[in-house]
Simulated assay, not measured.
Amino acid sequence: MRKFTIALDAMGGDFGPHISLSASSKSLQLHPNLFITIVGDAQQITPLLKKYQLLNHNRIKFVHAPETISMEDDPVSVLRHRSQSSMLVALQLVAKGEADACVSAGNTGALMLLAKHTLKTLEGISRPALVSALPNNRGGHSYLMDLGANLQCGCDTLFNFALMGSVLCEQVEQLSAPSVSLLNVGRESNKGNDTIKQCAEMLSATEFINYIGYIEANELFDGRADVVVTDGFSGNIALKSYEGMGRVFFERLQQAINTTWYSRLLGKVLNPIIKNQLKNLHPDLYNGASLIGLRGIVVKSHGSANESASFYAIEQAIKEIQWQIPACISARLESVLAERDCLSHE
């Protein structure tokens, strides 16, 4: 069984490094071939390593990084002036081959800029994209991208997102020719802006993507499309809407169960059934957006992630390591670039 290492930016996120360390402890118990390098400020991290019995763990390494990036920091300023930040040091470990993946819950803009600067993008890719799996009503997952890394996208960028998302879904979900859609304001071919229409033409013309047309936001979870592509502005709104509605649903359900003595009694009977049916819908299970298109694996955990959600971000990184996602995307890109070259000479 091959050993692999994840560099964990312990200083990112809203709740401090204890979330990352607690999730790390759980991951290490589940994966005997996993090694974790904790990156962060020694003054804050050392007491927590003792608390979670990780200080002398034979599969834990600690790297001191005294600087922290806040959610309000400007990404360009971070790139220029935070050479010892925990986020950058964790990414550098991946670039140097000392880690197989980086997981961070820090500033999204800073993570994308630092990752692009440190790891570089794959040939043919100008911008990395944030992608995450969402549950659908067929019992599987649909991958939505971009989730906020690129607020404005041209048709070439959206085409590359579709290609990368298709490869990711194909490998992780073990699907042959996953279906790909563009998020739009309607299914009709005359709907949408010029960028969407041009991208649709490009997707329809390639044999390397199973493009099935447009999809509307109310169809995101019906399972018709395995991969849904949009710009980061629309994608981020769609994702946050799902997360917010999911939490409202679970909270309202709990409130309804606790309203009267009769509902509480009924709840005791139905709770196991409800929990079993809804366990795969909880937003925590889908924490961990992949920053794909890079020459290394980077997973963005939600800033407000709890221990459970942080654990699933680490799990996502492990899946991508096992399936060697950057190499798979690179191989598919070569085929697409060759296809375009042939068409340009006809």
Rank of each mutant, 00 (worst) to 15 (best):
L265V: 06
K268S: 13
V63S: 01
I69Q: 02
N193K: 08
S104V: 02
R127M: 06
E251Q: 11
N210G: 08
Q43T: 14
I125R: 00
G124K: 00
V78C: 09
R332G: 03
N271F: 07
H282G: 03
L119C: 04
R247A: 11
I212C: 10
G139N: 07
N280A: 07
G140F: 02
L130R: 00
Q316V: 12
D222E: 13
N150C: 04
R138L: 11
K116M: 09
Q324E: 13
I321Y: 00
T118D: 01
I292F: 04
N107C: 11
V94P: 02
R82Q: 15
A305C: 09
F15D: 11
S25H: 14
L291Q: 01
L113F: 09
K120D: 15
F250Y: 05
G192A: 13
V269E: 12
E201P: 05
L113R: 10
A129R: 00
N33Y: 12
G267P: 00
A129G: 06
A23G: 10
V298T: 13
T108E: 03
L88W: 09
A205E: 15
Q255I: 04
H81M: 10
K275R: 09
S20Q: 13
V131D: 02
L30K: 15
Q254L: 10
S179M: 06
L278E: 02
N218Q: 14
M71C: 10
P17W: 04
L114A: 15
S304V: 10
I329P: 00
E243L: 08
L93D: 03
S330I: 02
A177F: 12
V103G: 03
I325C: 01
Y262S: 15
A313Q: 02
N258V: 03
